[in-house]
Write a protein that binds this DNA or RNA. Structure first.
Ligand code: MN
Ligand code: MN
Ligand code: MN
Ligand code: MN
Lengths: 219, 219
DNA sequence: TTTTATTTTTAGACAAGACTAAAATAAATC
DNA sequence: GATTTATTTTAGTCTTGTCTAAAAATAAAA
């Protein structure tokens, strides 16, 4: 139905729409897709032709309902495949993204329906990201960045904002994974760094780490 | 490493090399890939540049060792994915080929290694075709076409030559699948049609059917 | 309100892969 | 051996998706 390139653009725009309000700029798309602004202009004009997004010259793009549906379906596939890779093939969570980038473009509704069932209709992918259901509905859960919680508060890790292999490997080294309980012992006002406690271990983390970890403050 | 188009050409040429001896002709490739001879010429010239095959103008193509290795690896992936779709996702054998055509191009050695292990290192795909091992070695088994065996001989179905959905659905209707025991009760010299027995059922099959069913005559 | 800087778009080119139409070569037939 | 036919290749064009360089529009600064 749609080309690989089209699907990737729609997906990127979808993510960007959730990062900041208003129209998505040409430059933002170009940066997030590691391509040139002129290429982006070309493509969004084509996507606008196809009614997958609304585009006004010099003002940016905004997904249409159908465009959003396509994007969400790609994301659904991406995340289901990631679950498959981790749960069934025992890949580690830092190894699956690249492969899922390819698998997300396999065209077959039936395949995804069956894969979903095979995996037990998971609600979250290995990085804690919600998996849209068949109709594109995303379970929104209450979660904050670790950087947003205060001294002496506790939270349980429910996801990562960034999911680069480097970051995930850092978390492994620190024994942080989905489900890990974290208590903030101290928070430095100046640079946002923290002292946290996990189990009996206490250690320092930088603001960059705290800004990429999602936690749920349970109570 | 290689593009989707390149992989498909190499795979097609590999199959054609096994269908008849000598160089593979431009027209044969074009027909098997449902494309035009001029397009084939373009591509095999590029593949020759890349040393994936040997090409002499007006004489046809012949895979090089590296070209053959690439082709076999694609076939390995195709067949392993077909096993996955049937064994794990409960697809029927007539539904998997199209999806495997896409999955066979996913690039990740590790993925295939793990998929193979997950599936228990199967030797054959759902259509009875052998799955090359990691090193590209194909288990050659003794099998003949049903059309080649004589009256009163018995055989067990071990594979299909053609694997179109239509043919596979015909086989289903006749309750023929891998492992089915077949006895040839009669054979018409004129058109090669047969009367066969399966279990307690006896029925007529045309030569076209007999020429697309592989059997092993056990004795 | 000009001037300057940034963002975005256009124009033109390129690579991959496909196609049509025409030319070249090989195979078949007389 | 000459001629007709079939196969294969070349030449030129098209689409998709990318790029660079230049122009146009917008935003920021003076
Ligand atoms: Mn991912
Ligand atoms: Mn992805
Ligand atoms: Mn197949
Ligand atoms: Mn295939």
């Amino acid at each position: 139905m749609f080309t690989l390139a089209e699907e990737n653009y729609l997906k990127a725009i979808f993510h960007l729409e959730h990062e900041s309000a208003g129209d998505v700029s040409t430059n933002a798309i170009a940066e997030s897709m590691d391509t040139k602004p002129s290429s982006v202009t070309d493509m969004i004009q084509k996507l606008a032709e196809k009614k997958l997004l609304v585009y006004k010259r010099y003002k940016g793009a905004q997904l249409s309902d159908t465009g959003r549906k396509v994007a969400i379906n790609v994301i659904r596939k991406h995340r289901l495949w990631e679950v498959f890779l981790v749960e069934k093939l025992n890949f580690h969570w830092d190894e699956v993204h690249e492969i899922a980038e390819q698998l997300e473009h396999i065209q077959s509704e039936e395949l995804i329906t069956r894969l979903d069932k095979f995996l037990g209709s998971p609600d979250f992918d290995p990085h804690g990201d919600p998996i849209p259901d068949k109709h594109g509905v995303l379970k929104r859960t209450e979660k904050k960045l670790l950087s947003e919680i205060e001294k002496n508060q506790k939270g349980v890790c429910v996801g990562v904002k960034e999911s680069s292999a480097e970051f995930l490997q850092y978390l492994d080294k620190k024994k942080i994974s989905i489900g890990t309980k974290i208590k903030v012992l101290g928070k430095e006002f100046f640079d946002g760094s923290m002292i946290i406690q996990i189990g009996n271990d206490q250690f320092f983390i930088s603001n960059k780490i705290a800004e990429n970890l999602y936690v749920q403050t349970q109570e």
